[in-house]
Measured scan of single mutants.
Amino acid sequence: GKELVLALYDYQEKSPREVTMKKGDILTLLNSTNKDWWKVEVNDRQGFVPAAYVKKL
């Protein structure tokens, strides 16, 4: 099944490779191999968020 993460904080994208999320959002985790930036999918968009801003559910 898909792995989900919870947004712990708001995050505003700073580049086209990133995505914006709001605290409390549930996101689909696509890739967590990089310890600093995790790739997630939110609202049919894929991009990176800081790993410290999310936690695995």
Rank of each mutant, 00 (worst) to 15 (best):
1 G>L: 14
1 G>E: 13
1 G>P: 15
1 G>A: 14
1 G>H: 13
1 G>Y: 14
2 K>T: 14
2 K>C: 12
2 K>A: 11
2 K>F: 13
2 K>G: 10
3 E>R: 13
3 E>G: 09
3 E>H: 12
3 E>K: 10
3 E>F: 11
3 E>D: 12
3 E>N: 11
4 L>P: 04
4 L>R: 10
5 V>A: 12
5 V>N: 01
5 V>Y: 09
5 V>R: 02
5 V>S: 03
6 L>M: 14
6 L>F: 08
6 L>T: 08
7 A>I: 03
7 A>V: 10
7 A>C: 12
7 A>Q: 01
7 A>R: 01
8 L>V: 09
8 L>F: 04
8 L>Y: 04
8 L>I: 11
8 L>M: 11
9 Y>R: 15
9 Y>G: 06
9 Y>K: 15
9 Y>T: 08
9 Y>E: 10
9 Y>S: 08
9 Y>D: 07
9 Y>H: 12
10 D>T: 07
10 D>Y: 06
10 D>F: 04
10 D>G: 06
10 D>W: 04
10 D>E: 06
11 Y>D: 00
11 Y>G: 01
11 Y>E: 00
11 Y>A: 01
12 Q>A: 14
12 Q>I: 14
13 E>G: 15
13 E>T: 09
13 E>N: 08
13 E>C: 12
13 E>P: 14
13 E>Y: 05
13 E>R: 13
14 K>N: 13
14 K>T: 13
14 K>A: 13
14 K>I: 07
14 K>L: 09
14 K>S: 10
14 K>D: 06
15 S>N: 13
15 S>G: 13
15 S>W: 07
15 S>E: 09
16 P>L: 10
16 P>A: 13
17 R>P: 06
17 R>M: 14
17 R>V: 12
17 R>T: 13
18 E>Y: 06
18 E>A: 06
18 E>S: 07
18 E>Q: 11
18 E>C: 06
18 E>F: 06
18 E>W: 03
19 V>I: 14
19 V>L: 15
19 V>R: 02
20 T>N: 06
20 T>K: 04
20 T>I: 03
21 M>S: 00
21 M>G: 00
21 M>H: 01
21 M>T: 03
21 M>W: 02
21 M>P: 00
22 K>A: 08
22 K>I: 09
22 K>D: 04
22 K>Q: 10
23 K>I: 06
23 K>E: 07
23 K>A: 13
23 K>F: 05
23 K>G: 05
23 K>R: 09
23 K>Y: 05
23 K>W: 03
24 G>W: 06
24 G>S: 03
25 D>V: 04
25 D>H: 06
25 D>K: 03
25 D>M: 14
25 D>A: 08
25 D>T: 08
26 I>K: 06
26 I>M: 07
26 I>E: 03
26 I>C: 06
27 L>W: 03
27 L>E: 00
27 L>R: 02
27 L>K: 00
28 T>G: 09
28 T>L: 14
28 T>R: 11
29 L>C: 07
29 L>P: 00
29 L>T: 02
29 L>H: 01
29 L>W: 01
29 L>S: 02
29 L>F: 03
30 L>R: 03
30 L>K: 05
30 L>C: 07
30 L>E: 03
30 L>V: 12
30 L>M: 08
30 L>F: 04
30 L>H: 06
30 L>Q: 04
31 N>R: 06
31 N>Q: 10
32 S>V: 07
32 S>R: 07
32 S>Y: 07
32 S>L: 05
32 S>H: 09
33 T>K: 10
33 T>D: 15
33 T>Q: 13
33 T>W: 09
33 T>V: 10
33 T>M: 11
34 N>R: 10
34 N>E: 10
35 K>I: 10
35 K>F: 08
35 K>G: 09
35 K>Q: 11
36 D>E: 11
36 D>A: 13
36 D>P: 03
36 D>H: 15
36 D>R: 13
37 W>S: 03
37 W>T: 02
37 W>C: 07
37 W>M: 05
38 W>R: 02
38 W>E: 00
38 W>L: 04
39 K>A: 08
39 K>M: 15
39 K>G: 05
39 K>L: 15
40 V>K: 00
40 V>L: 04
40 V>N: 00
40 V>Q: 00
40 V>W: 00
40 V>E: 00
41 E>P: 00
41 E>D: 07
41 E>A: 12
41 E>S: 10
41 E>F: 07
41 E>N: 06
42 V>Y: 14
42 V>I: 15
42 V>M: 15
42 V>K: 15
42 V>C: 11
43 N>H: 14
43 N>A: 12
43 N>E: 13
43 N>C: 11
43 N>D: 14
43 N>I: 12
44 D>N: 14
44 D>H: 12
44 D>S: 12
44 D>P: 06
44 D>T: 11
44 D>W: 08
45 R>A: 06
45 R>I: 08
45 R>V: 08
45 R>G: 05
45 R>D: 04
45 R>L: 07
45 R>H: 08
45 R>E: 05
46 Q>A: 12
46 Q>V: 15
46 Q>I: 15
46 Q>Y: 08
46 Q>W: 08
46 Q>N: 09
47 G>W: 04
47 G>E: 02
47 G>Q: 02
47 G>L: 05
47 G>T: 02
47 G>Y: 05
47 G>F: 08
48 F>N: 04
48 F>V: 07
48 F>T: 04
48 F>M: 09
48 F>Q: 03
48 F>L: 10
49 V>T: 02
49 V>F: 01
49 V>N: 00
50 P>L: 04
50 P>I: 02
51 A>R: 12
51 A>P: 07
51 A>K: 07
51 A>Y: 02
51 A>V: 06
52 A>E: 10
53 Y>L: 14
53 Y>G: 06
54 V>M: 06
54 V>D: 01
54 V>T: 04
54 V>S: 01
55 K>P: 01
55 K>W: 10
55 K>L: 13
55 K>Q: 15
55 K>S: 12
55 K>N: 06
56 K>P: 12
56 K>Y: 11
56 K>Q: 08
56 K>E: 07
56 K>I: 15
56 K>S: 08
56 K>F: 10
57 L>N: 03
